[in-house]
Simulated assay, not measured.
Amino acid sequence: MTKREIIQAAYGDYWEKVKTYVDENGHLDVHWWTINEINIPFYRTGFGSRLPKSLLGIENNNDWVKIESIDSFPKDPVLCITCIFLEGTSYKIGSSRNRTPDDLLRMWQNAELTHYKIIESKPPIY
Rank of each mutant, 00 (worst) to 15 (best):
M1K: 07
K3L: 06
R4D: 15
R4Q: 15
R4Y: 12
E5T: 12
I6G: 00
I6Q: 11
I7T: 07
I7K: 06
Q8G: 04
A10D: 02
A10Y: 00
Y11K: 07
Y11C: 05
G12V: 00
G12Q: 01
G12I: 00
D13V: 08
Y14F: 13
W15A: 05
E16V: 02
V18Y: 08
K19C: 13
T20C: 06
T20E: 15
Y21L: 07
V22H: 03
V22S: 03
E24M: 11
N25L: 13
N25K: 12
G26V: 01
L28G: 00
L28T: 02
V30G: 00
V30K: 08
W32M: 08
W32S: 12
T34P: 00
T34Q: 13
I35Y: 10
N36S: 11
E37G: 06
E37R: 14
E37H: 15
N39P: 00
N39C: 07
I40P: 03
I40Y: 08
R44C: 06
G46R: 07
G46Y: 09
F47E: 15
F47T: 14
G48Q: 07
G48N: 04
S49G: 04
P52A: 08
K53W: 03
L55R: 04
L56Y: 11
L56A: 11
G57P: 04
I58E: 04
I58L: 08
N60H: 11
N61G: 03
N62M: 07
D63R: 01
D63F: 00
W64Y: 08
K66S: 11
K66Y: 06
I67M: 04
S69T: 14
D71H: 09
S72E: 06
P74Q: 04
P74S: 05
P74C: 04
P74E: 07
K75I: 12
K75S: 14
K75P: 02
D76F: 07
L79A: 05
C80S: 14
I81G: 11
I81R: 15
I81A: 14
T82A: 00
C83D: 07
I84G: 02
I84V: 13
I84K: 14
F85L: 08
L86A: 05
E87H: 09
S90I: 10
Y91I: 00
Y91N: 11
K92Y: 10
K92G: 01
G94E: 10
G94Y: 05
S95P: 01
S95M: 05
S95T: 11
N98H: 09
T100W: 09
D102G: 01
D103C: 01
D103E: 03
L104M: 12
L105S: 03
R106K: 15
R106N: 12
M107I: 02
W108M: 08
W108R: 06
W108N: 06
A111S: 15
E112D: 10
Y116W: 03
I118E: 15
I118T: 15
E120V: 14
K122C: 10
K122F: 12
P123Y: 06
I125N: 07
Y126L: 09
